[in-house]
Amino acid sequence: MQPALLELIRRTSSDLPGDVDAALGRAFRREAPGSAARGAMRTILQNVAIARENSTPVCQDTGTNLHFVHAPVDLSEGAVHQAIVGATRKATRLGYLRPNVVDPVTGKNTGDNVGRSNPLLHYHQHKAKSLRVELMLKGGGCENVSTQYALPVNRLFAGRDLAGVRSCIVDSAHQAQGKGCSPGILGVGVGGDRMSSYVEAKHQLLRLLDDVNADPVLAKLERSCLRGINSLGIGPMGFGGKTTALGVKIGVVDRIPASYYVSIAYMCWACRRRTLVLRPNGSFTVE
C-alpha cells in the first residue's frame, strides 16, 4: 500500500492535473499582451512544466496533506493510517514535501510532516474491493484567505437566500485579492454547522474544473459567481487583470433553522489534487 501512496504524493506535489493546466492556459491567453498579469501567467505555465519534468514540488508550500479515504470494509483504518504516515515520511525525505508540521506551543517543526492530526484523514467505507484515496495539498497562503460567513451579513446587504450566498462568495474573492495566489478556485459549502460546512467546501475542490453541477440552480449560481468574481479586475497575483478565479464549485449541507453558513475554501492556482485507486491484486493508478 505504501509505494502506491508515495506515488500519489509525488504526482500530487509535482504534476498539476490536466483540467487545471488547461484552465491556466486559457487564462494566459485572455490577459493583455505586455501586461504584468500575462507575465505572471507565463511564469506560472513555465513553472508547471518544470515541476512536472523534474518531479519537484509545483509550490514549495506543500501545505496540509488532506486525504479523503474510501476503503473496502475488510481494510482497517489503522492499517491505512499507518501506510499514509509511512508514505508521508518517505515523501518528505525525498523532497516531494517540505517539512511543514509545526507544534503550536513550542514552535518546533517535527521535520517529517507527521504530528497531531497530520497527515489529515477523512475515512469512509465503501462497497468496492479497491482502496480509493483522494489527496489534496493545500498551501497556507490560500488557506489563510479561506473564510466563513454566517448569514445575514449586513455590510454586504446579504440576506438568508441564494442572492445572499452569492454576495458572500464574491466578497470572499474581493477580500482575498491576490493573497491566495490568484487565479484561484473557490470551493463553497452552504449550510451545515461550521465544521460540516467547511468540510463540504474542501470536498468541492475535488471536482474537475469543467464539470457542471448536477443541480441546475447551483450550476447557475456557480456561473454567476465566477462572472462576478472575474469582473472585480483583481487578476493573476492581484496585479490587475481579467482572470481572478478559474472556477467556483458549490455544495450544500442541510442546516438548522437558526444557522445559515457560507464557507469558502479558497484554493490557489496550484490546485494539487490527485486520486489513487489501489486494486486487491496490488496494481494501482493515480489520476
Partner: peptide, 29 residues
Amino acid sequence: HAIGGAAALLAQCVTRVESVYMLEEFGVP
C-alpha cells in the same frame, strides 16, 4: 512581487546556497 507558487522555476534562479543560519532552531522553512 514574485510569482506565488512558481516554486520550481524560481528555485532554478537560485544558483547557490552560500550559508544558512538558525536552521536547527527554526527548521527548514
